[in-house]
Design a binder for these strands. Structure first.
Lengths: 78, 78, 78, 78
DNA sequence: ACAGAAATAAAAATGC
DNA sequence: GCATTTTTATTTCTGT
């Protein structure tokens, strides 16, 4: 008898998901380590977090501005 | 016998929540109407939505900048 | 020549949208406060949320039943 | 004169953080793609998410049991 | 350790 | 119905 193909397929998907989730937690640990390291050098973690957040918002702003520009261009037939 | 005070209390809370949720859907309808209205005057809804979003992000940026400044000030003892 | 009416018009729309969005966040804060308040009296927030949701579904069901009734009534000439 | 070392140091930390955050979003996209793929094959995303979560809890439980076993073993000199 | 705040993940709702 | 946005739930982090 052959194995049930459907369930093997699902199993595959779950394996792949769990693999990427392992990678995710590894990288999250890396980030945590960086914060610990800079804290160890006397930097204020809360402040650095806020700087990172602010830079992220700035990037988002730029992206949204570009999208708006694209909309305008589309409206004038460019 | 008096009524169960606890359950009456919970009932009160739920009434208050449902009241504000009614207000919420009313205001969401108002917003929807405004978009319909401007669409009726030939404006592109998608574009206007993006402008509103962009302005919101800008406001957020300013707020985050102020918070960062506050952190800096606190760090130099202001 | 007068100022460009279109852009003033758009500005008006955006002002109105932002006004209703401010109202939205105000009312959301009210709701949040109610949840904080009932939490402070020992109620479980998550559970109360579920109750509110269930009651909403019930209300919806009742409304649908009434609409169906109206439909049938119309079909039999009531 | 050389550049201010402190600020360069902070800049380094921020660069490293942003680098790992980029990696994070890349991998999150990978995960999203897997869910899209399994959805495309007819699986229910929400249910698969639940399974993944359950397996995570199971793994945690097993790990805790092993740790407890190790503790007992140490206590009896194994 | 625990309360409150912030980040992330998941679910639900909305618009096209 | 599909995809994007919004809301809710869970998890993580930080300061007391």
């Amino acid at each position: 008898m052959t194995t049930n193909m459907s369930s093997g397929r699902l199993q595959d998907f779950i394996n792949r998901i769990e693999k990427v989730e392992d990678e995710l937690s590894g990288i999250k640990n890396d980030r945590k380590d960086i914060y610990l390291e800079l804290k160890g050098e006397g930097y204020d973690v809360k402040t650095v977090r806020k700087i990172v957040r602010l830079r992220k918002i700035d990037a988002l702003t730029r992206q949204q501005e570009e999208e708006l520009l694209d909309l305008y261009k589309a409206q004038v037939g460019l």
